[in-house]
């Protein structure tokens, strides 16, 4: 049963990692503009859009 202490600590570390990731993302400005990236993802990378017609 001692293992539960280990498990709880491990779980906290994992969740803490995600919390740190969220901190990084927020400070990086990823949540300042949530609309444009949603539009941006729809674009094709290539310049060959004419061929598609």
């Amino acid at each position: 049963m001692q293992v539960i202490i280990l498990l709880v600590i491990a779980a906290l570390v994992v969740a803490g990692g995600f919390l740190a990731a969220f901190f990084w993302a927020t400070k990086d400005g990823q949540f300042d503009d949530t609309i444009t990236p949603a539009v941006r993802i729809l674009f094709d990378d290539s310049d060959k859009s004419k061929k598609g017609e």
């Binding site: 969740a15 803490g16 919390l19 969220f22 901190f23 927020t26 400070k27 949540f31 300042d32």
Partner: peptide, 18 residues
């Protein structure tokens, strides 16, 4: 300011769940 609030929510939510 809005970033700080987001972080506060994240930290508090994290603590609350645990």
């Amino acid at each position: 300011e809005s970033r700080k609030l987001l972080l506060q929510i994240a930290v508090t939510g994290f603590a609350m769940g645990n």
